[in-house]
């Protein structure tokens, strides 16, 4: 007779992650990040108020994976769709989950403008330097000399230009409250990534402004590597180009929110400060 030991749950599926099979490839980092988002939604107790926007890309079917209400957006348009939802229901927590092609190529206008409007939304940005779903084409974040299906001789910056560093670019915009670049290649970094994602959702919950977390990710399938090789390549090549860290945190900078930080930055501009005697 075996001892009847009391069961202790040490690991379980987050409630807001549905018990469905995902379409992600083996070794793909999307699964980790999906889970982190779900854990954060659970911990903040916001599943019933959250609306997620899935993009076009490998996470296109994320609407089937998350337990909260979900919307599938057209390619690149997730920030505009999120804007529509958030304007109707400011009390909803609205997040967009987007890849590099979606966010930084076809959807760059929507990305930049949602950020500069200070839309109180959260964007989870997966940067794996390639178009995964369509089979491995050059992305706006593909590195110089990186070989892809559409840069078969390596990304030639003479003709294809340079990769876009999204966090750096968005950090100049006044509507942004919080930006951090993380990765998920180790337990330590996964924990850091989760902390960042949680902070981004809290930023939105507290109404501080636009928040985005960029996850430097891998694509073993389209990079043609094992998951371990992919992480090694990512650490070696991507992290120097896309350094991890916080790119904007208005609260850490001593401001209550993005609006206050923007106001301080434009202090010398009278029309931006009508109540202080400037011209309106």
């Amino acid at each position: 007779m075996a001892d009847q030991k009391e069961e202790k749950v040490v690991f379980q599926r987050p409630h807001s992650l549905l018990p469905v099979v995902t379409n992600y490839c083996p070794g793909c980092t999307h699964g980790i990040v999906n889970r982190l988002v779900a854990e954060v939604i659970d911990e903040l107790g916001i599943e019933g108020d959250t609306v997620g926007i899935a993009p076009v890309g490998c996470s296109v079917m994320a609407y089937n994976f998350f337990g909260c209400d979900m919307i599938e957006a057209a390619h690149g348009r997730a920030p505009a769709v999120a804007t529509g939802v958030k304007r109707v229901h400011p009390e909803n927590i609205v997040f967009a989950y987007q890849g590099d092609g979606d966010l930084a190529s076809i959807g760059m206008a929507e990305t930049v403008h949602a950020a500069t409007r200070g839309e109180n939304i959260t964007v989870i940005f997966i940067n794996n330097a390639i178009y995964g779903m369509t089979g491995g084409q050059m992305a706006p974040t593909s590195l110089p000399n990186q070989v892809t299906q559409t840069s078969p001789y390596g990304r030639d910056v003479e003709t294809a230009g340079y990769p876009i560093r999204v966090c750096e670019l968005l950090s100049t915009l006044d509507g942004v409250a919080y930006l951090e670049r993380v990765t998920v290649d180790s337990p330590k970094n996964v924990r850091k990534a989760k902390k960042a994602i949680k902070k981004a959702f809290e930023t939105q919950r507290d109404g501080l402004g636009y928040s985005l977390v960029e996850v430097v990710a891998t694509c073993p399938t389209n990079w043609g590597m094992t998951p371990q090789q992919a992480f090694a390549w990512m650490r070696e090549n991507m992290l120097p180009y896309y350094p991890l860290g916080v790119y904007k945190d208005v609260v850490a900078d001593g401001f209550a929110n993005a609006a206050e930080a923007a106001s301080a930055r434009s202090a010398e501009c009278p029309i931006a400060h009508p109540s202080e005697g400037g011209e309106a």
Binding site: A74, G84, V85, E110
Partner: peptide
């Protein structure tokens, strides 16, 4: 963007 905002607002 405008039509996609309509899309979002309508979904909401």
């Amino acid at each position: 963007a405008a039509i996609n905002m309509v899309y979002g607002a309508s979904a909401a």
